[in-house]
Design a protein around this nucleic acid. Structure first.
Length: 412
RNA sequence: GCGAAUGUAGCUCAGUUGGUUAGAGCGUCGGUUUGUGGUACCGGAUGUCGCCGGUUCAAAUCCGGUCAUUCGCCCCA
């Protein structure tokens, strides 16, 4: 440690940015609660196996992005790289299957050892929702509707698009994968080196390659939709019908896949064009196999997570520190009286600031910069009469008000 | 993990072919008759020029390394 700085890919959250984060989390929580979800907080680290066994042995997250550490007892622990595995672990360990369905939301820091960029850091914040125990398309529709409602509830600049696809059940997915691999092997020479590697590790990823040569090959590749079996097709159809019914705009993207192994059936993303290479702002999908894979009874599940930092960067306007009133004593002789009035307001829940130094003019300037609605001026004359000058800073009007009437005046 | 760019006051940046005490705007602080803002004027403060090393009589300026950031790839929220 040579210099006082945060470690690579981490940052201090304060001021405008912290307020933006709070605002987003507040709105997301409100939406989640409207949909009947409850908050859960799980530890930010788990036994390494919780992630390593379930996200996919060959996934990038597991092979090169986890922050693993050994505790003093020799246990291998990992800072959570995502939220779902921890929530599902909790679902099993806490015996929540006694009361299905389980509807949970969470938010907090996640950790991935990645190369930092705009919209990508090593410690970042996610908000997520999980709905466990519902097999029907109702769950998909509900969870996507919540995501859609939430993103639209935020005041974002730039276009946001919901993209959706179905990976089908395991049978459909395996069939498709075999066909895709066969096709890609026929065209092996035309593929980029990255895609040759993907072919080995996660063939579906070749579908959303950005390489131009790959794109032309992918154009003619077998289509996912053609390999879904009847049940999977019907399921996806019902999900889309539900979204139509709720007037949720979406775009079916047959090349949309997921990086983590546990997804099946419905997968979806909300993307934007204003964050460079980090276009995905929210992503999720169904994970009908995960609970069983982690040792619980076979139970359906679906959820999503969004990156708070990415959303915060898209917010149209800065969130200002809220101040309703600023107390301005005319001089140090009435400082105590001014503090007393401030205390009365504060204990009534009115956000009240005070100015600490300067002449009247300076104090007024500060009140103005604080964006306060009212300046409350107190001098010796007012103290004698048990009044204050209540000045509306938006309108520029002011009047003398009894201290005992002050709260009523402000609250209107 | 790969490729490229950048790094000067709190912020945004200027700094000519290396040459005295490194600048501007914004912000901040103080003042302009010690009771009134959002649109005035005057003045002040602040920088180990990211860090370490090298070349040179002399480096913010050239070279190497390092750290951090940004862009693209990989991947992902």
């Amino acid at each position: 440690m040579k210099k006082l700085q945060t470690v690579r890919g981490t940052y201090d959250l304060y001021g405008d940015k912290k307020r933006a984060h709070n605002e987003i989390i507040k709105k997301a929580s409100k939406v989640a609660q409207s949909f009947g979800f409850e908050e859960i907080e799980t530890p930010i680290f788990e036994f390494t196996n919780v992630f390593a066994r379930n996200l996919g042995e060959t996934s990038d997250i597991v092979t090169k992005e986890m922050y693993c550490l050994e505790d003093r007892g020799g246990e291998s622990l990992t800072l959570r790289p995502e939220g779902t595995a921890g929530v599902v672990r909790s679902y099993i360990s806490e015996g929540m299957q006694q009361n299905l369905p389980v509807k949970l939301f969470y938010h907090g820091p996640m950790f991935r050892y990645e190369r930092p960029q705009k919209g990508r850091q090593r410690q970042f914040t996610q908000f997520g929702m999980e709905l466990i125990g519902v097999e029907t398309p109702q769950a998909d529709i509900e969870i996507i509707a919540a995501a859609y409602n939430f993103v639209n509830y935020l005041d974002l600049g730039g276009n946001v698009v919901v993209e959706i696809n179905s990976l089908g059940d395991k049978e459909s997915r395996d069939n498709y994968r075999d066909e895709l691999v066969a096709y890609l092997k026929e065209n092996l020479d035309g593929l980029s080196n990255d895609s040759k590697e993907r072919l080995e590790k996660n063939p579906l990823r070749v579908l959303d390659s950005k390489d131009e040569k790959d794109k032309t090959i992918v154009e003619n590749a077998p289509k996912f939709g053609d390999y879904l079996n009847a049940e999977s097709k019907e399921f996806f159809k019902l999900v889309l019908e539900g979204l139509d019914r709720l007037n949720i705009e979406y775009k079916v993207n047959e090349r949309l896949v997921r990086g983590l192994d546990y997804y099946d059936h419905t997968v979806f993303e909300i993307t934007t064009d204003c964050l460079g290479a980090q276009g995905t702002v929210l992503a999720g999908g169904r994970y009908n196999g995960l609970v069983e894979q982690m040792g619980g009874a076979k139970t359906a599940g679906i959820g999503w997570a969004c990156g708070i930092e990415r959303l915060a960067m898209m917010l149209k306007e800065d969130i200002k520190k809220p101040v309703e009133a600023v107390i301005i004593p005319t001089g140090s002789d009435v400082m105590l009286e001014a503090m007393e009035v401030a205390y009365i307001l504060r204990t009534s829940g009115i956000i009240t600031e005070q100015s600490y130094t300067g002449n009247m003019k300076k104090r007024m300037i500060k009140a103005d910069k604080m964006n306060a609605k009212y300046a409350i001026i107190i001098g010796a004359d007012e103290v004698a009469k048990e009044t204050v000058i209540l000045k509306n800073l938006d309108e520029g009007t002011q009047k003398e008000v009894k201290v005992s009437e002050l709260i009523k005046e402000i609250r209107g």
